[in-house]
Simulated scan of single mutants.
Amino acid sequence: MFVRYQAAQANANGNFPGVFGLVNGLRRRGELTEEQEEFVRVNNTWYDAAYTDPSTVDPTVYDREVNPGARAWFKAEATHLMARLPGYLVLLDAHGVPWERLTSDDPGRILYEDADQVVVVPHPSAAFDRQPT
Rank of each mutant, 00 (worst) to 15 (best):
Y62Q: 06
Y88G: 02
S55R: 14
G14P: 08
H123D: 12
L26W: 08
F39Y: 15
R4V: 11
N15D: 14
P54S: 04
L102Q: 14
V40N: 11
A8C: 05
G30H: 09
A12V: 12
D105F: 08
Y51T: 06
A83R: 14
E77R: 15
R64K: 13
D93Y: 01
N15H: 11
G69Y: 12
G96A: 05
N13H: 13
D114P: 02
D93F: 00
H95M: 01
A127T: 14
V61F: 12
R29T: 11
V97W: 01
L102V: 03
Y5L: 12
T133C: 06
A7C: 12
M82D: 03
V3S: 03
V90W: 03
S104Q: 04
R27Y: 04
Q131K: 12
Q6M: 08
R64D: 13
R130T: 12
V57W: 01
F2Y: 15
E65F: 04
T33W: 06
N24P: 00
G21H: 04
T52A: 11
E35C: 00
Y5N: 06
F16Y: 15
A8Q: 10
L111A: 04
R84F: 09
G69T: 07
T79W: 10
P68L: 09
F39S: 03
L22S: 03
L91Q: 04
E35G: 02
H95T: 03
W73I: 03
Y47D: 05
L26V: 10
Y51F: 14
E31Y: 02
G18Y: 02
L85V: 14
P98A: 08
Q6I: 00
A49K: 14
P59S: 12
A72V: 09
R28A: 13
V19F: 11
P86R: 06
D116H: 15
V120S: 00
Y5F: 15
E37I: 00
N13I: 00
A49N: 14
K75G: 04
K75M: 03
T33K: 09
R109H: 12
D106V: 02
Y88W: 13
T56C: 05
R101E: 13
L91C: 09
R4Y: 07
A8K: 04
K75D: 06
F39A: 09
R71I: 15
R41P: 00
N13P: 01
G87T: 09
N13V: 05
D58C: 07
G108F: 00
V118G: 00
F39Q: 07
E38S: 10
A7Q: 10
G30A: 08
P17C: 07
R64H: 11
E100L: 08
V118L: 05
F2G: 02
